[in-house]
């Protein structure tokens, strides 16, 4: 039983992480008695399980995820929504509060038109079926104001931080409302464009430097400098 990597060490696909009876977690695989990384990321040992926290990758929907998407097409009884994932999402009419309204059923654009941005939750997804969305729930629905920022979905956990420390720092410093979609799309709503811009700049910085130490301090410094 040996672990070959240090905590948070940068590893590339095919690198040996450990030997012995460790459990292969996310982005790792076992071959014989050895554990290998399968993605570029930071290796970590959690209890007896080895994982690689990815530094890049696409968004794979999970049930109950909160996402922000764009309506790309109107289907027979719902909307096709682009959630920047390899899998196109469907928001069925039956998952909207106005599902029984006859006028809406005749003309779906009364609720969403092509190009509209929507906050939604994933209610179903697996390997065989494309994700289904719902807007039944608090805070879900059409987005009418604010600024949308796209970052890599792999960096969303870093943007939120441990117990939400990073995101609350951003909210406090920029005085903006920040709503994070798990698919890498973030909505920023602030009083002034300057504040929204700073929040966006901070997010791009987090995306670029997610794997560095002392990031929180640097982000906070940058925001203070910008907003002074």
């Amino acid at each position: 039983m040996t672990v070959f990597t240090e905590k948070k060490q940068l590893v590339a696909p095919g690198e040996v992480l450990a030997e012995g009876s460790y459990f292969p977690g996310e982005n790792t695989y076992r071959e014989g008695n050895k554990l290998y990384a399968s993605r570029i990321g930071l290796a970590e040992l959690v209890a007896n399980k080895l994982i690689v926290v990815p530094l890049k990758g696409c968004y794979i929907p999970r049930v109950d995820d909160f996402v922000i998407g764009r309506v790309v097409d109107i289907a027979m009884s719902g909307w096709n929504v682009d959630i920047s994932s390899p899998y196109p999402a469907l928001l069925p009419l039956s998952e909207t509060p106005a599902a029984r309204c006859m006028a809406v059923r005749k003309d779906l654009t009364r609720i969403f038109n092509v190009g509209d941005l929507v906050m939604a939750e994933v209610i179903a997804f697996d390997r065989t079926r494309d994700p289904l969305l719902t807007i039944r729930g608090r805070g879900l629905g059409k987005i009418s104001s604010g600024r949308v920022v796209h970052i890599s979905p792999a960096k969303i956990p870093r943007l939120i931080g441990r117990k939400g420390s990073m995101i609350s720092l951003l909210k406090k410093a920029t005085n903006c409302e920040i709503i994070v979609g798990q698919n890498g799309t973030v909505l920023v709503q602030g009083r002034q464009p300057k504040n929204e811009q700073t929040a966006a700049a901070a997010m791009y910085m987090i995306e670029r430097e997610a794997h560095t130490r002392g990031l929180t301090d640097r982000v906070s410094e940058m925001m203070n400098r910008e907003l002074r």
Partner: peptide, 11 residues
């Protein structure tokens, strides 16, 4: 492929 974050056995 590795840069795209696609899972690979190795490069």
């Amino acid at each position: 492929l590795a840069d795209a974050g696609i899972p690979l056995k190795e490069i």
